[in-house]
């Protein structure tokens, strides 16, 4: 049972720090389970997808209650993230595990460097279970009256727009969503790293709305691939149980204390941890 408690604690740590640093649980759970507990990488990804669904459902509930997420835009895009997730779920079982480890190492390097370069910006992957939504402007060049770049899908885009902003470049959103779904299924992450910049910078959605909408989408995206992992024997209930509970508790605590903590030192410390973990994953990739 000591291992069970350790797994619960590891999940809580991943949820807490994931919430504080805006990484989402998945980025930390997969290396924790593979490097810390010796779990096969694919099983770790399956467990991570379960944790992503738990945190997404909990946070999406809060975001919907506060009307912070754009339900119509999120559902339109999650049609494509779910499609990508099905493809990724199938491909994940066909790929060499060492290649998956290499991809994960690349993800960790990207996330680590993004954390160093980020200057006080809100987290991209997950804002936490009780994150508040407030008003913020759309990305530069994405104002309500900006119609110069609208294409033939402007009628659909207009229907998906929200108060104070107009959605555009729906085609880019669709392509990016498929990519986010594939990445989510392959690596067991929520995919906010792709979806939030996509919605904010390319589609003109305000950052807070993009973050909330991305959280809403993660549940369906992860569940589409989790179904494949489950039916293909890629989810271990004895590992998923304690880990998912830990992540849920940790993320809940993190979202309540995030505004009271100076994250600069923590971010720097975690960048070092992520880069070291990336090195270990790269070693795994190289056999």
């Amino acid at each position: 049972m000591i291992v069970g408690l350790a797994m619960l604690g590891a999940g809580a740590g991943a949820g807490l720090f994931g919430s504080l640093l805006g990484l989402g649980g998945g980025t930390l759970i997969v290396p924790l389970l593979t490097l810390g507990f010796g779990l096969p990488l694919r099983d770790a990804v399956g467990v991570s997808l379960v944790a992503v669904i738990v945190t997404s459902s909990a946070s999406a509930s809060v975001f919907l209650q506060r009307h912070a997420a754009n339900l119509r835009l999120g559902m339109t895009l999650e049609l494509f993230t779910a499609t990508g997730a099905i493809v990724g779920g199938i491909v994940a079982f066909a790929l060499d595990v060492r290649l998956l480890a290499g991809l994960f190492a690349a993800l960790l390097v990207y996330v680590g460097l993004s954390m160093v370069l980020r200057r006080g910006a809100p987290p991209a992957e997950a804002e936490g279970i009780a994150a508040a939504a407030d008003d913020d402007p759309p990305a530069a060049g994405a104002a309500l009256d900006d119609t110069a770049r609208e294409g033939p899908g402007q009628g659909v885009a207009a229907r998906l727009s929200g108060p104070g902003y107009r959605v555009h470049r729906l085609g880019a959103g669709v392509a990016g969503s498929v990519f986010a779904g594939v990445v989510s299924a392959l690596l067991g992450i929520g995919g906010g790293t792709v979806k939030v910049p996509l919605m904010h910078l390319a589609m003109g959605v305000p950052l807070r709305v993009a973050t909330a909408t991305s959280n809403l989408m993660m549940g369906v995206t992860a569940s589409a691939s989790a179904v494949i992992y489950l039916l293909r024997g890629g989810i271990d209930p004895y590992v998923a149980g304690p880990t998912a509970i830990g992540v849920f508790v940790g993320a809940s605590i993190g979202s309540r204390v995030v505004h009271r903590i100076d994250l600069r030192v923590l971010r720097l410390l975690f960048t070092v941890v992520l880069l070291y973990t990336a090195f270990q994953m790269a070693r795994k990739a190289l056999g």
Partner: peptide
Amino acid sequence: GLLVVIATPS
């Protein structure tokens, strides 16, 4: 529990 978690978004 896992089925409930996975089915909730659907």
